Amino acid sequence: MCVGLGYHCETTYQLRRITGNGSAHFFDWLDLELESVVEAIADDFAHVLRPGQVEPFSDGLCALDRGSDIRFFHDFRPADGRPLTQDDIDRQLDSVRAKFTALAERWRALAASPAKVLYVHHDAFDESTARDLNRLRQVIATAHPGQRSSLLWLRRTPPADPALLSTGITWGTVAESPGRWEGDDAQWDEAFSAVPLSRGPRP
């Protein structure tokens, strides 16, 4: 099983294309930094989408959850194509919360299962260090001590400190594809060519 951990929609699109598995996971189609992923897992998603914390952001292009610093571009929608408003968010918050409560339950069920999981974090702006990824892996291991998992760190350029990565973390690179939010298919295929766990039947 292959599960994406952000940074944004490129990850979700590519993992579904590569694995042929369209099952939804908690961090799919979200826009968020690594710290938001770490905090959400460490807190068992308790601080995500709390009432009174979600507001329009980026001139109404998305909703920002101030409690988690996650940006929701696809789950809150204005009725007529105008910029997203606070009223839009307030009307839809319960249904969006219900969706992510169900996805959190799916996350926990997978973590408690015997399945081996490859977590993939796309460091789309080369912001993180090996120590940051080590912390992410430790948080996952602490939250789900019985789970068999590994972590793939994908960057635009090679990391400066790969020797510091903990056991169970590998890295690769996927170049940006200008003008294509989905990313470069060939680059992602190459990055996953040595990761047999990620591959599944193509649609």
Rank of each mutant, 00 (worst) to 15 (best):
G22L: 06
H121V: 07
E176N: 14
G172E: 09
N21A: 08
P203H: 01
E35H: 03
I18W: 13
H8F: 11
A111W: 02
A163W: 03
L49N: 04
I140W: 05
L32H: 00
T129L: 02
T167K: 15
R180F: 13
S166T: 04
I18K: 12
P196W: 02
S23C: 10
F72G: 03
W171K: 02
R137K: 15
R106W: 07
E55H: 12
D90Q: 13
V139C: 00
H122V: 14
H25S: 05
I70Y: 02
A112I: 07
S95T: 04
L61Y: 05
A160R: 12
G200F: 15
L136R: 02
F26R: 00
H144Y: 11
A104H: 03
G6V: 02
P51D: 07
D94N: 09
A42S: 01
S95C: 04
P145Q: 00
T129R: 05
Q187F: 13
F100V: 09
H144M: 10
A130I: 03
K99T: 01
P83H: 03
V174G: 01
V48E: 01
Q92F: 11
C2P: 15
E127M: 04
F192C: 04
T129G: 08
G146V: 06
H144C: 09
H74E: 10
G179E: 14
E105N: 03
L136P: 03
P162T: 06
P159M: 03
S128K: 15
A141D: 04
V3H: 11
W29Q: 01
G200N: 03
T85I: 15
G6W: 01
L151Q: 10
D31S: 13
P78N: 06
V48P: 04
E182Q: 13
A79Q: 11
V3M: 11
H47N: 06
N134K: 14
G146Q: 15
L136T: 02
L136S: 00
E39L: 05
A109Y: 00
L5Y: 01
L30M: 10
S58R: 12
H25A: 07
A112L: 04
R155N: 13
C62A: 13
D161P: 02
Q187C: 10
F26S: 00
A186D: 03
R131T: 10
A98L: 01
R82I: 04
G60I: 09
E55C: 14
S113D: 07
V48F: 04
L151W: 10
H121L: 02
E190R: 12
G179I: 11
G172M: 09
H74Y: 06
T11G: 00
P178I: 11
P83A: 08
P158F: 13
H25L: 00
L136Q: 01
V37S: 03
L93T: 05
R16T: 08
L154S: 08
A115D: 06
I18S: 12
D59K: 12
H144D: 10
P114R: 02
W107D: 12
E127F: 12
G60K: 07
D28A: 02
E33W: 01
A79S: 14
E10V: 13
R66F: 00
T173N: 02
L103I: 05
E10I: 07
L110P: 05
H144F: 14
L30F: 11
R106E: 12
I169G: 09
A112G: 07
C9L: 11
